[in-house]
Nucleic acid binder design. Structure first.
Length: 802
DNA sequence: TATAACAGTATTTTT
DNA sequence: TACTGTTATA
């Protein structure tokens, strides 16, 4: 066994690493499992390992395939490897599973009867397709909803079970399963007819491709000599199978003729080396098929594998780690692991119990200002929550408290109807076979083509065995009214024109993606029609469309040779975390799931309540509670210096407010680690501290009882509506700066000076201590008589000068 | 065909 | 609450 390469690893690639980290960089063998606790420097190990392989000439950059969880992580890893080697490295594949598979599938598409420009359906697209099928089969009446069908099919694909495979194992006496099977068949047939893949297909079809065509697989088995997979605990069966295929040595008869790498004695391609990094304690995607056994049984799967444990944490203080260890220790059935640090104890964890979600949010806002005054920049702070619905209250309070923030994920830019519409136009142009996309845009903007006409075209296409688009081209034969016929003809003409202009076979004068898009939008009159309504919401929509054109311009700038298909691929595969930019000067808001892999000086975990942090939906799933605990663990371990845990006594959801109990996870943290500003006990007891904000009217001073917990309690606040509809989203997330436009209540004319007495609807009376900021961003710092000092954004504060 | 008004309902996490 | 789907009416 030769563990060490002939060329020594340059010293600077191992210096400064601790012994296990160093061992992980130096190990040379077929399979390596790195169990990397949170904050143990695994990205460092991975980048150094890749750099060492290249520096020693053991591998060319093109022989490396590294799989990361997000595109952002991929970009970062690429940059760090380049930095270590002192030059940009070309030819490495560093990407997500999905991106890598798309690349392979596009390259090989023609070999299995697909088109290179196939469309990628996101979950909303597949939902729309399934909706049609479910409706046609009247499956809802049998208790099969669109989302059940979607979930079942997704799970089947993750297990690499195709409709035929499902037919073999399905319980034929179960009518619902029979129905699912039929839906699955039709769905898959339509995807194929539309030349489209859904997210799950991207992985599954690649595996299928490799299995069906060993000589194609051999191309990649030969190419990728070193495969590295990050976040291995979150891989599903299909992804696991893909890795297995890639690390399988190719049989001699499939080895391509021009192979120059050393072959085994029998002429086969030896298996590639595999490095996986993960932490079973951070597995949080079981709900979408992640199989923790992939990591726990790695050594069985790859006999002779080396395992290296990284336990020293370089991120958090000991108090934070103690809490994390204590919490995760309640999960049985795990390989024991104890994170430790040399960083010292650090500050205690801060706990706070609000009377309401508003109160809790106000606490977060106040603390953010305090931390900022203490020298931590907004960039280095993050607020986490279990569900996206929690953002509403947080946003409302953060805006009014003048805390700049950005939402990561949430209702994403690309999920907005108007953006999806325009993207559907592009999909139609890139792939005329895609019926779903044409039908989405056939009457948007309104052209007088209703459901009747739409169905007529569909039937005509079926009867004549032509595509939907071809049927549109022969609109005259449909025998419809002249108005509708013209409308169809016009649309068809615009689409054909756009197709012509972007045609990849034209080698001269090809129009850029953004130019084509801009012209298309103009020809269709999409923005124009939105502007004409005079509705402020439509104005915001128009801006979104314009923003999409800007995104395309940016794409053209970054990829001068990029095609429309490339652009659509990028649009389809952006992840929530990809949009993070570290220089924004704003606090980041995101779900606990999105937080994985990130770190911040100060972290707030909000809504640490029963039913929410172990989420009620997890209760009846096997292993659900353990997964929720891991999620909490992930959240805790994101914090470098300060951790805040907060909850509310009542939470309003779906218009109804109900009493919330502290999460059981809180009790798993030793008391000594948490300094409660207001503990769950204090908040309920009579002598407890007065509520910080009086906005939980009827709950606070005296009146007691839970009679008044209705949602009207916040009646005096400007309700979110007006504010929210004005938000101008930038790609993927909305930013503070853009949100303060003409809100419901515009206070921007209010002139305040130091010493002025003011009255606030929630906080009562107070004295202005300071005024900062300009114009619409003027911020008043007010010392309230009852609730202390607060910073308020004057423009939106319910404030009155006395 | 488009729109407004109404009723019913589902509520997690995401590539 | 907020979104979807249905129904009535223009």
């Amino acid at each position: 066994m030769t563990f060490f390469s002939p060329t020594a690893i340059p010293a600077d690639l191992v210096e400064g690493l601790n012994p296990p980290q160093r061992a992980a960089v130096e190990y040379r063998g077929d399979a390596l499992l790195i169990i990397a606790g949170a904050g143990s420097g695994k990205t460092r190990v991975l980048t150094h390992r890749i750099a060492s392989l290249i520096a020693t000439r053991e591998a060319w950059p093109s022989q490396i395939l590294a799989i990361t969880f997000t595109n952002k992580a991929a970009a970062e890893m690429r940059e760090r490897v380049g930095h270590l080697l002192g030059e940009a490295v070309e030819g490495m594949w560093i990407s997500t599973f999905h991106s890598a598979c798309v690349r392979i599938l596009r390259r090989e598409a023609e070999k299995f009867g697909y088109t290179q420009g196939f469309t990628i359906y996101d979950s909303a697209d597949s939902k729309a397709l399934l909706k049609r099928i479910v409706k046609a089969l009247e499956a809802e009446s049998m208790g099969v909803t669109v989302s059940t069908a979607q979930n079942r099919i997704s799970a089947l694909k993750n297990e690499l079970i195709d409709p035929d495979g499902f037919a073999r194992q399905v319980d034929s006496t179960n009518p619902r399963d029979q129905l699912i099977l039929e839906i699955y068949r039709q769905y898959q047939r339509q995807l194929e007819r539309n030349k489209a893949f859904d997210f799950d297909d991207l992985i599954a079809q690649t595996v299928w491709l490799f299995r069906a065509f060993p000589e194609i697989a051999a191309l990649y088995q030969r190419r990728f000599r070193h495969i590295l997979v990050d976040e291995y605990q979150d891989t599903n069966h299909a992804q696991y199978a893909l890795i297995r295929e890639l690390t399988r040595g190719a049989e001699p008869q499939h080895v391509p003729a021009d192979t120059r790498i050393p072959l085994a004695a029998d002429g086969s391609i030896p298996p590639a080396s595999l490095t996986v990094v993960g932490d079973s304690d951070q597995s949080i995607y079981a709900f979408r098929g992640a199989d923790i056994r992939n990591i726990t049984e790695f050594e069985k799967d790859f006999p002779g594998a080396e395992t290296i444990l990284l336990e020293q944490n370089y991120r958090s203080t000991q108090h934070i780690l103690d809490a994390a260890n204590a919490v995760i220790g309640n999960n049985f059935d795990r390989r024991p692991k104890n994170l430790w640090t040399a960083a010292g104890e650090g500050a205690k964890i801060v706990g706070y119990t609000g009377y309401s979600a508003h109160d809790e949010a106000q606490f977060v806002a106040d603390e953010i200002h305090k931390l900022r005054d203490g020298g931590i920049s907004f960039n280095d702070m993050a607020v986490f929550y279990r569900t996206n619905a929690q953002t509403r209250t947080l946003e409302e309070i953060l805006i009014r408290s003048a805390v700049p923030y950005r939402l990561i994920g949430g209702t994403k830019f690309y999920e907005r109807a108007e953006v999806k519409d325009i993207v559907a136009y592009l999909m139609t142009i890139a792939n005329p076979a895609d019926e779903l996309s044409v039908r989405r845009i056939i009457n948007s903007p309104k052209r007088g083509i209703g459901p009747t006409t739409e169905t007529a075209i569909s039937i005509f296409a079926q009867d004549n065995d032509i595509t939907y688009r071809e049927a549109m081209g022969r609109a005259k034969e449909l025998g419809l009214g002249p108005k509708v016929t013209n409308a169809i003809g016009d649309l068809e003409h615009i689409l054909a024109e756009a197709e012509e202009s972007i045609d990849p076979s034209r080698n001269t004068g090809a129009v850029s993606v953004s130019d084509m898009l801009a012209k298309l939008v103009q020809r269709v009159g999409y923005v124009e029609k939105l502007r004409a309504t005079g509705n402020p919401q439509d104005d915001a929509r128009a801006e979104n469309v314009e923003e999409l054109i800007n995104v395309a311009k940016e794409f053209d700038k970054q990829h001068p040779d990029g095609t429309l298909v490339d652009f659509l691929t990028e649009v389809a595969l952006v992840a929530a975390a990809d949009d993070l930019d570290d220089e924004s000067g704003a606090v980041s808001l995101m779900t606990l799931h999105t937080a994985k892999g990130l770190e911040y000086d100060a972290v707030f975990i909000t809504g640490v309540e029963e039913e929410l942090l172990p989420h009620r939906m997890s209760a009846d799933e096997p292993g659900g509670l353990a997964e929720e605990r891991r999620l909490f663990y992930v959240g805790i371990t994101r914090a470098r210096k300060v951790l805040h845990l907060s909850l509310a006594m009542t939470r309003t959801q779906y218009g109804e407010s109900s009493v919330a109990m502290p999460s059981r996870f809180l009790q798993e943290i030793p008391d000594a680690l948490i300094a409660w500003r207001q503990s769950p006990g204090m908040a309920t007891s009579r002598g407890g501290e007065r509520p910080r904000a009086l906005n939980a009217t009827g709950f606070g001073a005296g009146s007691g009882g839970r009679r008044a917990v209705g949602s009207r309690s916040y009646g005096e606040m400007p309700r979110g509506e007006g504010l929210k509809s004005e938000f101008k989203p930038t790609r993927g997330n909305r930013q503070f700066d853009n949100q303060i436009t003409g809100a419901v209540k515009d206070n921007s004319d209010l002139v305040l000076e130091i010493g002025d007495r003011v009255k606030h609807t929630d906080f009562g009376e107070g004295t202005v201590r300071n005024v900062t900021g300009l114009a619409k961003k003027r911020i008043a710092e007010v010392e309230f008589d009852d609730v202390g000092r607060k910073k308020l954004l004057i423009k939106v504060a319910p404030l009155e000068k006395l």
